[in-house]
Design a protein around this nucleic acid. Structure first.
Length: 171
DNA sequence: TAAGTGCGTCGTT
DNA sequence: AACGACGCACTTA
């Protein structure tokens, strides 16, 4: 079941060497991170005027963490996350993903076991696909048991790239 | 071996 | 009621 979601109140662009990411924030923290879109037009910020320091601080942390993560290093500090958009099951999965260290990978089955539902491995895959904060919540570190890539909502090229930069993918 | 098929399982739509 | 970002057992070639 879903929880009431605090609507994302602010969305900022984060330019990186890989393109412009979009980060959305609620008062609770970073609520969504989106990969660079094909046609990445300028993002109109409807929030001209006072942006709470709390949001700005969070965004600064996100920017720093993202730049680290994109070059395959472990961010020393992660921003506060707002994962309230997920169901309890999804949040449990996402929380588990945060335990996967840089340079390591788990299988979908391992994640399922970690949350005490070894049979729900397929549902875990779905939950990974619903991860609102890719890269920082490292769903890309989950592979199929046979070490195949599995899937990735933003495209397998991204998954492969992220893993390569962490040294978790050959070639 | 490699590649293909079938099915259990379970959260989500 | 149907569908997966799965995994495993079990064919075939």
């Amino acid at each position: 079941m879903k929880n009431s979601t605090n609507p994302a109140q602010y969305t900022f662009a984060i330019p990186t060497g890989d393109g412009q990411f979009l980060a959305s924030y609620s008062s609770q923290g970073l609520s969504a991170l989106r990969f660079p879109a094909e046609a990445n037009g300028s993002v109109a910020l409807s929030t001209m005027g006072g942006i709470p320091d709390q949001i700005l601080n969070c965004h600064a942390e996100t920017t720093a963490a993202l730049s680290m993560a994109l070059v395959g290093r472990a961010p020393p500090k992660l921003p506060r996350f707002d994962l309230s958009s997920g169901t309890q099951f999804q949040r449990e999965v996402w929380r588990t993903l945060l335990r996967i260290e840089r340079g390591r990978t788990w299988s979908y089955a391992q994640v399922a076991q970690a949350i005490g539902r070894p049979a729900a491995l397929r549902a875990v895959g779905r939950a990974c696909g619903a991860n609102p904060i890719p890269v920082l919540v490292p769903c890309h570190r989950v592979l199929a048991s046979n070490h195949a890539l599995g899937g990735f909502s933003a495209g397998l090229e991204w998954k492969r790239l992220l893993l390569k930069r962490e040294g978790s993918w050959p070639s």
